[in-house]
């Protein structure tokens, strides 16, 4: 497929380069819609139907490249599972009780009721989250191992899942407005889209720990100095610079490019699998739902801060 127009992303082939534009408002948050369209992209890259010899991945959103996972969708998903489960389990009983009786029962049961509800709901939440995680991991791995060079053009917010998406690209070109962060611990979670194993491939433990365990953001200049991005540009010049890099890579023999990628960037398979298990352990904690609720209802100017 040489041309694709989706809700979250679109692509077209120009001069042998597949130009993929992320365009979902507000900041390319990755939910099921983006996931589905990324899956189509990865399939097209691996079956070679685009005919492209390199990829340019960029965002046209002013806020930045990508603000990460769609936390609102995650929160609403958990709420939806909870309501459906409670309705299914207690539906028959509830229809015979008045609102007053239910309120009294809730007040009397308190923590016990909450614990019981969590025990019912959590296995279903974990199952859905694991399904999503395995799909997004397949996408990130698919980009990482695509038989062509993938160049990421980065600006503004490159946070969480957005940082992880950037780390799945082969060559990263950032303008000076780009900032990188793993804010997941603030939500009681670890990065879940393969970010830590991929960052470990680029830099040492001191940097990974600093970013992961403080949640702070890193500016583009420092990210360049550390080797997280390969090229640094003036504000707004990153897409053109990334396009030139992709066109250069497209000139090389495809089989040699594929061999060079396999050699230079082996997939950290075991660490990626560990990450999924760690994430699934974290998601079981009540801390996560509370943090997500705070996030989606926040009107703070910096809602990603705890």
């Amino acid at each position: 497929m040489k041309v694709f127009h989706g809700v979250a992303l679109s692509w077209t082939v120009v001069d042998d380069v597949l130009e993929v534009r992320l365009h979902r408002a507000p900041a390319n948050e990755i939910g099921t819609t983006t996931l589905r369209e990324l899956e189509q992209l990865v399939t097209a890259l691996h079956d070679g139907t685009t005919g492209a010899r390199a990829v340019l991945l960029y965002s046209d959103r002013p806020a930045g490249f990508c603000a990460g996972a769609d936390l609102r969708e995650l929160y609403e998903g958990i709420q939806g599972i909870r309501h459906a489960t409670v309705r299914r389990t207690l539906g028959a009983l509830l229809t015979h009780l008045s609102e007053d009786t239910l309120r009294t029962a809730r007040a009397l049961l308190g923590d016990a009721a909450r614990a019981g509800r969590r025990a019912l709901v959590m296995p279903l939440v974990v199952r859905e989250v694991e399904r999503f995680l395995r799909r997004i991991h397949a996408v990130m791995d698919g980009l990482d191992t695509a038989p062509v060079v993938v160049v990421g053009a980065l600006h503004g917010v490159v946070f969480g899942g957005g940082f992880e998406l950037a780390l799945a690209t082969d060559v990263r070109v950032a303008d000076r407005t780009a900032r990188f962060a793993f804010p997941e611990l603030r939500l009681g979670l670890v990065p879940g889209f393969g970010g830590v194993p991929r960052l470990e491939r680029e830099v040492g433990t001191a940097v990974v720990s600093d970013l992961l365990l403080t949640g702070r953001s890193l500016n583009a200049k420092r990210a360049h100095a550390l080797g997280i991005v390969g090229q640094l540009t003036a504000p707004g010049k990153h897409v053109d610079a990334a396009r030139r890099a992709a066109r250069q890579a497209a000139r090389f023999d495809p089989a040699t490019v594929a061999a060079a990628k396999r050699f230079a960037r082996p997939l950290p398979r075991a660490r990626l699998d560990d990450e999924i298990q760690t994430f699934l352990t974290c998601i079981r904690s009540p801390v996560v739902e509370d943090a997500l609720a705070r996030f989606v209802t926040s009107d703070d100017v910096r809602p990603y801060l705890p």
């Binding site: 806020a63 702070r216 890193l218 200049k221 100017v301």
Partner: peptide, 22 residues
Amino acid sequence: SLQAMDLLTALEDRFDIEIPDY
């Protein structure tokens, strides 16, 4: 929040330092 982030980058650039968000 975006302007706050922009201001942080501007401060870091102007003084050639890093300031953790927290």
